[in-house]
Amino acid sequence: MKHLIEYIFGFIIGLGNALFFLGEVLAHIVRGHVRIKEVLKQIYEQGIQSIVIIALTSFATGMVLALQGYLMLERFGAKEYVAHLVALSLVRELSPVFGALIFSGKAGAKMAAELGSMSVNDQVLATRTMGVDPVEFLIVPRMVAAFFVLPILVVLSEVLGIAGGYIVGISEANIPGSFYLNRTLAAVGYVDFFSGFIKTFFFAILIGWVCCYQGFKTRGGSLGVGRFTTRAVAFSYILIVLSNALLTKIILTLWG
């Protein structure tokens, strides 16, 4: 019982600190303390880091969806609906969620590990001794970059996933190519696209926040860097999956 109380107490304090940290970041952004050059550098690095693995995963996922979907739909004589199935699954759920998970495993881990090793090597402290705010110089650019990079990667993932489905559709299911594409375009409505797309911005903030915060408070040498980085990725995963359930419910309720 005593342990439980201590645990809950520690959790509340930890959450408070993390929220304070997020507040600091937002205050800088609101005041326009955003270093464009650093943001562009981070956009480039985060994008390069994740683009190949997200592209491969999406393409393969699109193919698998089409293969499975075609077998199932054919039993009902509705194989031309495979284009619907692929496009809607990707756009509404799979690309945003898998994209975010992969992004936190690559770019998020990179943020946490870089900031963590800078913390334990006194580079964060050195930033303060040089009269520069480390949150403004090191954190804000990473979080702002993630906010732009993840949504772009997710759209790319949707396009490539649909391409994977298209290839299976025309070669395995013998659906004419132009028909498949028309079906896809007809299937994905405004609401379908944005119900998935909006979530990517939440995920981007979540990943940037969790990974930067864990990196920033890393202590304990190289062991600490390992521990805090793994924790950053694990927290991101859990929060993405849980918040996705919540966000999906909210979006479906509001929007249908």
Binding site: E114, N121, D122, Q123, M130, G131, D133
Partner: peptide, 24 residues
């Protein structure tokens, strides 16, 4: 405040034990 301190620190040089140069 940390904000005022940042201004004070501009006029102070600090050499860290391990250097603490930015490795990037």
């Amino acid at each position: 405040s940390e904000r005022d301190l940042l201004r004070v620190r501009k006029n102070i040089g600090y050499l860290f034990q391990e250097g603490a140069l930015y490795d990037f």
